[in-house]
Design a protein around this nucleic acid. Sequence first.
DNA 1: TTTTGAGTTGTTCGA
DNA 2: GTCGAACAACTCAAA
Length: 459
Amino acid sequence: MTMAPPTVMWFRRDLRLADNLALNAAAAASAGEVVPLYVIDPRLFARAGAPRRAFLVASLRALGASMGKQLVVRHGDPVAIVDAVAAEVGAAEVFAAHDFGPYGRRRDAAVAERLSAAGHVLRLVGSNYAVAPGRVRKDDGTPYAVFTPFAKVWERVGWDAPSAAPSVLWRGDPRVPCEGYPTVPDLAAELPAAGEIAAWDRLHQFLDRGGAHGYAEQRDRPGVDGTSRLSPYLRWGALHPRQVLAELGDEAGHRAMRGELAWREFYADVLFHRPDTATGNLQRAMDGIELDGDDTASTERYAAWCEGRTGYPIVDAGMRQLLATGWMHNRVRMIVASFLVKDLHLPWTWGARHFMDHLVDGDVASNSHGWQWVAGTGTDAAPYFRVFNPVSQGQRFDPEGAYVRRWVPELAELAVTVIHAPWTSRRGPPLGYPPPIVDHATERQEALRRYGALRASSR
DNA sequence: TTTTGAGTTGTTCGA
DNA sequence: GTCGAACAACTCAAA
């Protein structure tokens, strides 16, 4: 019996053992002898906020623990490192899942080229999606640009049932130095539990507690634990969407959840066809919109937005939740995004970048296109005049002010009647809480004027 | 080829 | 307080 040489499994955003097609292939090609690798890429890691870094490292630790040994962790340029590790262990093949993001595609092409120069090969198997980007097409072969028809076809194309974890002899090798996990602040209290087991706990909680029932109505309420909270696990691949889809039935909450997964895959598909939309407008006609940003006042307003001191409670609550926990309720993401784009007239790319640096679930496709939806530059054909009112949104979706009280403690004692507009309180806003940095009604008009001017100039 | 219906998530104003 | 209209017009997708 001849021993097959080991293979390298390069983990990226698939930090799990079950239903991992690249890992299955890596194990099959090596009679189970697999060297598990993760590369800390400074281009992605260096500027990330504390929760994002801490959650990644916790996810890596959980993955290592699930294999019964520490993952080989290296820091630096993946092009050099993947090649070096393959050489160190004598592996001919390196396995990984497809990454369809613009940076990931460039990186993987460069890694593959370097490997092939040494006679090695990068094999990309599977992806982070139930239906790989590019597979859902119209009859004429072109991609969809509207969600609803995409989602119908997406579901018809369908996906395979999840597969079990392969049996693997994780290969320890003294020739393979491991640089260890990066040092990160201990934020355990504020972060979701990381890893594959925690992901399944969360999924079962969601399904069992009838999550599913309340989900359709409750997920818009930031003061309630009504969302699935699965996004961090999907982002890092502790769960694959196939595994979630396989658990969903036909009740309303389950259908809504399937719809959310379809949105995730729709945006990945759009980005796949238009990689430039990670940082540029999908609708190029919107490039001419008048934006602020080049003056000191803009810089100061942007800082106030980032730090949660705009004077609008629901906006500040969201921005503070983001900095403290690396997560923000989806309803609030829309509100703070609308505020940056429509009230402060700043580029959506500024907000998108801040989100990516801090969100533990930050994903280029969902993030950039979520922002473009708000900015009116993306797939939504919807009217430009959709401007969120931070006061009425607060009153409608956080009626008791529970969410604001939790994240803006200065306002905790305010009456329900003024919690979303403290400046209207007869006693005035509490000490230490700023007055609104801009007047919403005025800036709404200004936003409408700028969109109108763009339309007039393009006619 | 032409036609037709539809398109995640909103706000304000006035009757 | 509730309700419908206006905000404007375009692109997409399928029949």
